[in-house]
Every structure is written in C-alpha cells, then in structure tokens.
Nucleic acid binder design. Structure first.
Length: 261
DNA sequence: AAGATTAGCAACCGCATTGCA
DNA sequence: ATGCAATGCGGTTGCTAATCT
C-alpha cells in the first residue's frame, strides 16, 4: 500500500499554467492571502491540485520574485553556498532575495554543474587540484558534500550572529514564518539546538546521513567550518553594498577567487 | 529542409517535518 | 502522547526551443 495522494487527481488540470489560471490564483491570494492550499483551488475556481497552486505561487506569481538574469555575484554566491551547504536549495535561496529554490536548483543543474565540471576537467588535464579559495581570506579549500536532503529551519541551523540576523531577516521576509515568530523572536538557544530534529546539521566532514538520525549538534561543528560560513556571509554582505570606486578591485577579487589557483 | 540531439526550465512526485486537535 | 492534515523540500520528469548534423 502506497501513501495516499495529496488529492484525487481525477479531473484536475496538469502541466503548464494558463494566463487565466494565473490570474485566478493571483487574485484569490491577493484577496485572501496565502495558506489553506488544499481548499484554495476550490475556493479560487481552479481545477488544480493545492500543491500545484502553492508551487505556482511560490515560484512564479509572488510579487517579490526576480526571474532570470542571475548576476555574476549571485552566481558566485550560489557556488560558495552550495559547497558549504550542499543541495539545500531553500537555504541557498534564502540568501538570495527574490530567488526561489526551484530556480536556483535548475540554474545549478543546467549551468553551474556543467561549469564546475569543465573547470575540474581542465584542472585535472593541467594536473592541478581545483580549489575554491577566496583571495584575501583564510578560507581553506572547500569540501563539497552532498548530504541527503533534510528539512531544516533557516533560523535553527546556525548560531546567531549580527550578520546572520540580517540574512535571516532576508530569508524569512517573504514567508509567513516571520509573522509567526516576529523578527525579535528569532533567537536560538545554543544549548537547546543540539537535541531537536532540526537542531543540528549533518556535519560536512562527519559522514552525513540522517537516516540513522545522527546529527552533529552545532556546538560540535568544526570551528573552522563555522567560521568559514560566517566569513562567507560577511564577504557577500560587503559586496552587496554600493560599489564605490575603491570597491571595484574587491569585487574583482571575489570573482577571481573562483578561478583555479 | 528535416530529423536528431541538447539545453533550459516548469511542473510533478514522494517523503519529511510541523502544527494542531 | 498520538494521529493526521497541511506544508515544505529536493529529486526527477517531460516539454519546448535552440542548435547541430
């Protein structure tokens, strides 16, 4: 016996959304807000599965969404975050305002993956080991890890710091989590996070696989790993500030840091 | 010009997690 | 404490357009 489907699919539309369906969904959500996805299609007059409505709204119709034209900076950040976080697309997307996990995942699979493979290949042909080591920082060459996908709360996986807070605000601003928690309530109990389901993080260098329920509590994180992540966010934050004359070189170094050393 | 192949991306699916009764 | 519905996530599929042969 398999799991029951999220809804009876009989008689429901599938495949690409029409302009009319988009309009119906947008209008309904503008009037009634997000949520109650299961009943939403019925209420909005849509012959779609609730899940499908949610996906459409989250990935394409939401007003705060940027689409296409991923900038070199965003591109760089995706590569760096991916090497630190693995395939945690929603976490990565949370650091890129206006971008969705689906877009980043697709972008990674179609562009970046290929780009990095080519780089690896070129490097091995040249007899060198590829490294992702930002110039001007002491970040060691980054280990790529591919943990099994797990659901993590963005506000519970990393210790709180000032720069992290600002990033959290960005990542939560478009979700209803911010409403539930309130920005001032986002606080992490360093002593408590280790025991909860999402309170730890499959450690990058600890044979990560959550199937045994083995999580590495944050307090057990390698301090270098923690520092690396923090430094990366700070570095990106700096780059997000208006590029002043003197900043141009910094920006170039950031980009250059992806070139093989 | 036509068929084959590849690239890009929207959408679907199954499972995990959360929240509530 | 438990069960269930709702929601969120990442992996995968499948369609379309672009490019190649």
């Amino acid at each position: 016996m398999g799991r029951a489907p999220c809804c009876p699919k009989v008689g429901l539309h599938r495949g690409p959304w029409s302009f009319k369906e988009d309009a119906l969904l947008t209008r309904y959500i503008e009037e009634h807000g997000e949520g109650n996805w299961r009943n939403l299609p019925k209420m909005a007059g849509l012959l779609r599965c609730g899940k499908s409505c949610r996906l459409r709204w989250m990935n394409y119709l939401r007003p705060d969404i940027k689409r296409g034209n991923i900038t070199p900076d965003e591109d760089d950040l995706i590569v760096r975050l991916h090497s630190l976080l693995g395939n945690r697309w929603s976490l990565i997307a949370g650091r890129l305002p206006g971008r969705t996990d689906n877009e980043i995942k697709n972008y990674w699979n179609s562009h970046l993956c290929k780009k990095l493979k080519n780089r690896d290949r070129e490097a091995s042909e040249a007899g060198r080991t590829p490294k992702l080591s930002p110039i001007g920082s002491n970040i060691p060459s980054i280990k790529v890890h591919h943990p099994k996908a797990i659901r993590v709360s963005p506000y519970s996986v990393m210790p709180r710091t000032e720069s992290l807070d600002s990033l959290l605000c960005t990542s939560l601003s478009s979700s209803n989590q911010i409403n539930k928690l309130g920005p001032s309530n986002i606080n992490i109990d360093q002593n408590a996070v280790g025991g909860g389901v999402a309170g730890g993080f499959p450690g990058p260098s600890h044979g990560n696989d959550d199937r045994d329920g083995v999580f590495v509590p944050i307090e057990d994180w390698d301090s270098e790993e923690m520092k690396t992540l923090e430094e990366l966010f700070e570095e990106y934050e700096k780059l997000q500030r208006p590029v002043e004359a003197g900043n141009v070189h910094q920006m170039e170094s950031f980009v250059d840091s992806f070139l093989l050393i």
